[in-house]
Write a protein that binds this DNA or RNA. Sequence first.
DNA 1: TGATGTTACGAGGCACGTAATGATG
DNA 2: CATCATTACGTGCCTCGTAACATCA
Lengths: 288, 288
Amino acid sequence: MSSAVGISIADVEPHLLRTFVAVAETGSFSAAAGRLRYTQSAVSQQIAALEADLGTPLLTRRPVALTPAGERLHRHAAIILVRLAAARADVTRAVAPPGRLAVGLTPLAWSKRVSDALTRIRAESARLSSRVLVADRDRIVAASATGEIDIALVDGFTAPNDPLPLPVAGAVRVAEDGAVVALPRDHPLAGRPTLQLADLTEAYWIDAPVVSPLTHLPVDALRTGLRYEGADVAVLLGLIEAGHGLSVLPSGVARGVLLPRMVHRVELLATPGAGVPATRLSELLAGP
Amino acid sequence: MSSAVGISIADVEPHLLRTFVAVAETGSFSAAAGRLRYTQSAVSQQIAALEADLGTPLLTRRPVALTPAGERLHRHAAIILVRLAAARADVTRAVAPPGRLAVGLTPLAWSKRVSDALTRIRAESARLSSRVLVADRDRIVAASATGEIDIALVDGFTAPNDPLPLPVAGAVRVAEDGAVVALPRDHPLAGRPTLQLADLTEAYWIDAPVVSPLTHLPVDALRTGLRYEGADVAVLLGLIEAGHGLSVLPSGVARGVLLPRMVHRVELLATPGAGVPATRLSELLAGP
DNA sequence: TGATGTTACGAGGCACGTAATGATG
DNA sequence: CATCATTACGTGCCTCGTAACATCA
């Protein structure tokens, strides 16, 4: 191994990054202070220190918003903080693999097969302490990296031969079905056999980042009328039926018109060294 | 964006990571102290603090070596330190794109084409301050991430349709030629038209990690007789001719017997926002 | 005027160096 | 016994909280 990680370059202090991220996400110094159990003053000083260190303003004040340099830093910082946590998790897990089983999934990753696998493994090892976390994809991937969960099931939409665009490698396909545009029963397009996204530029869409994140579709071009931030599929279906807008969903969940050249897929992320129950569950899921 | 990067979890202090990496690479507390301009005592305290924080020994003493947990941490730490530096570099570059041009390359990435491109761009912008760094692949990739260099040219051997196994995305193919096993003139195999690596398990190899890193070949199976840590191709060729061992080299550099199903390729990494000269050079290189 | 970010200042903590101590080949 | 890591201890820096101040809706 080379001595590449040279002498020079002062460190970017991680607690400053953490505070910076908190401010960026809350849009407020005081809110960030509350979240991190600091005083407003401390947050202000930390941001000032970071800006002085990097030699450039990172945030505008009143209103608090990211400058271009701040945008860049924010992208880096989020990744670095996760990796930092992942390093700690990986090392401590290597010492004492947990006996528990923590599963994380995105709302649409749930299925009978997942349910069965969980039932079975809990039956196998009687008094196994288990935990299930449902959240949006970013949260689940981060929790997987940090070892907060041992197994992650993540769903998403892509072209049939592409993998899901995840920021980590090593995902395994677990399930796949079609992608439909969910429509109210009485919608004019409801009779069509298939549909192109282009047919729907006139429609209003429901932006549901937790349930149905379409980050890699040209959804910018679509008009979003309503934003649903919950994780409950039934609520989203209700909103669609009530005519608040359309959404892309797996064919197993909603009636609607099929989108060709697009699939809904569930992938499995197992964190290495997460212990025996996790390995067993991943076998059950990835197997036949 | 979700508030995924939660409240909890104490930070892993980067200066501890840096010290840990230095100790791991030098195999000595005192050497690491020298390199980082600390006292032995400080290094000892830092390692102790890190081990206490993570709750597990990371290094054995006398001799100093990584424990399994230490191995894990070392992998993470090297990546994190580079990303930390990359964050700083990216932000500061965004503020003031450099007017200079810094090029980094692995020894075998040099070619007439590269030379010509450099000549041309230096002619175009008369008093352009330029810098060229030649080092092993890890060093070059790290330097590219940290912004130490603006353009990186990295070479390596792979299967014809595979990309080079780099830890970063976005590499562009610049040049490609064959891979030969370089042999002394009087070697018994010198007459063969092509060769399988399997034919050569009886031979001795020169391990030249800087010039010809064969990390992704089954080189473990091969017997290495000598290690050459320099970056000079001519020296390596001399060693081969003198019968100290064989080596895999690009067909443009050395006479030898072709390896089928394997190519030598040079790829280009341009760091985004590195300024106009870098963009221009990357056009010259990636172009026709 | 009230909420929110900044500045001043002092106390506490902590990370370093010096120096003495201990272990190991 | 020389080299190298650890422990003891004191000092200086640095970060945080309190509190006063500034600024914007």
